[in-house]
């Protein structure tokens, strides 16, 4: 069962759409659930589908299509590094190598203590700040250097 807080947040999204078009809120609903849980399970996706009165398979299609959704356990802090052209030209590879070495994991892996996971990301649309990364999808860090990455990670408990 979805918590009351979750339901309230989804209800607020539902106000944006006609009353007979609840499915329109599925991306928002999955986002809200993932932000609370860290990743999406089949059960959570089914709960979202039920709440919006849509087929479970349609919600699953959405969860598997949009790449900011996590379908496997992620770290407490999911780090997504952009490696697309504008970041690559400004040495995003150095940032990736630094992170992989520091955390001792590759892309799509989680550290043993479950604190961090690492993902390769496509263009985030903020290339003047290249190279850049996001933490848990919603917090962006720009103009990265290995030193700056160290600082950012140190501040995370």
């Amino acid at each position: 069962m979805l918590t009351e807080t979750t339901r309230k947040k989804i209800d607020s999204e539902l106000k944006k759409f006609p009353i007979d078009q609840k499915q329109s809120a599925i991306i928002a609903a999955l986002q809200i659930i993932q932000t609370e849980n860290g990743f999406l399970t089949d059960d959570l996706i089914a709960l979202a589908a039920d709440y919006l009165g849509m087929p479970k398979i349609a919600a699953m299609e959405v969860a598997t299509f949009y790449n900011m959704f996590e379908l496997k356990p992620a770290g407490k802090y999911k780090i997504s590094v952009c490696t697309n052209i504008s970041c690559a030209l400004r040495e995003a590879d150095d940032i990736v190598c630094h992170l992989q070495k520091k955390l001792n994991i590759n892309f799509n892996e989680v550290t043993k203590d479950s604190k961090f996971s690492l993902k390769e990301s496509e263009c985030m649309g903020a290339c003047s700040g290249a190279p850049l990364m996001t933490i848990n999808n919603h917090k962006m860090h720009e103009h990265l250097t290995p030193q700056k990455v160290d600082q950012i990670l140190e501040e995370l408990d």
Binding site: Q23, S24, Q31, V62, F65, N67, M68
Partner: peptide, 27 residues
Amino acid sequence: LHAFHGYGAYICGEETALIESIEGKKG
């Protein structure tokens, strides 16, 4: 007027994919 967020799909910049996405579907 409402704000709608995507969640990681370049293809949704194509206008009919974007419309599908607003309808709560794959883009």
